[in-house]
Design a binder for these strands. Sequence first.
DNA 1: ACACCTCTAGAACGAACGCTCTATCCAGGC
DNA 2: GCCTGGATAGAGCGTTCGTTCTAGAGGTGT
Lengths: 197, 197
Amino acid sequence: MQTATATASSAGTRDRIVTTAARLIQRQGYVGTGIKQIAKEAQATLGSVYHFFPGGKEAVAVAAIGHSGAEFAAFLREALDSAEDPAEAVENCAVRLAVELRASGWIDGCPVTAAALETLGGETGIQQACAEALRDWERLVSEKLLGAGFAAADARELATTVIGALEGAEVTAQVNHSEEPLRMAGRQLARLIRSYA
Amino acid sequence: MQTATATASSAGTRDRIVTTAARLIQRQGYVGTGIKQIAKEAQATLGSVYHFFPGGKEAVAVAAIGHSGAEFAAFLREALDSAEDPAEAVENCAVRLAVELRASGWIDGCPVTAAALETLGGETGIQQACAEALRDWERLVSEKLLGAGFAAADARELATTVIGALEGAEVTAQVNHSEEPLRMAGRQLARLIRSYA
DNA sequence: ACACCTCTAGAACGAACGCTCTATCCAGGC
DNA sequence: GCCTGGATAGAGCGTTCGTTCTAGAGGTGT
């Protein structure tokens, strides 16, 4: 265990490293983000980074992806609570994503997709962290549908489709610098969900 | 212009560089793929690569993404022709993607997504090549829908949604080492398309 | 006062990066 | 025969990569 001050100071530095790494990986990918860049922008030194993460770059990335995953889960939870009707809630979610994406200058996309795609060959730790994040998000959508009376099988299949479609639409929106792909996906997903009523 | 033999020999090497780069970028991303690795695996030398692509790494990548985009367009065209009904055709497309993905050991995913996400900050040439590829694919789906009597606005919105959903589902399938996300997306997209009938 | 431990600090290492450069090879034109 | 220019070949440039290492700062327990 640690004393109060030690906890505060170390958690501070560690936290800065994780959040900075999360933002950089989201924007530049895993390979494109260097350990030294993370340390510099987090206002930490290389020594500190390797002190908190003896596993090196991959360990930092795993923690960062976990952080991003939880952050997006919170966003998703709130967006899904914005409406009683799951179809409307999903569409709201897409619209909010579109607005946030534009506000970031089209660079803050899905926090796990880039890292996942780059590391498919090896780096199983990172891939596992990405898989867990995706599962979490699907679970949130699935629970929303179950709460609205959907059958279990339908909810599961719809949830996977919704998360996948939002991911793909976000990439399309980023590449085209346009909110439209996300807004379209939102509308169509809402229509799909309503088709079960 | 070039003589017949010169064309054959130079196109051979140039072609090998492009196809090799396309495969490597698809699997490792743009940043994760080195010029020397491309040259080595294409059985070319560094001199040849810079001879054919004075623009360096980015120029090679733009050509590679163009190649991958056209290749996937051909795949898409054929898959969409597998059934008269557009809903059935899209579902077939998802299933074929799932089968091919498994066969590749889950590593040969969407050929442009990874490169697009890594280079969102700069490298506008690469981003443009990705945007063009996506537009091409959407156009193919849209034309299939128009041929089945869909309204222009519906066809456009559905096409964007279909391509986006397939992309996202493919990433999910890769991360989870499972065909299910793609098969689910195929079923749901078919249902969505049929809801317009 | 002293030892101890967490955390910070950054120099240094070998490897790999993208790219430039010179040298060589070889077919076609004169 | 010689010259020209496309194509091949790879050594070497400066830089950055991830990682390791030693040194010291600052606080706590005895």
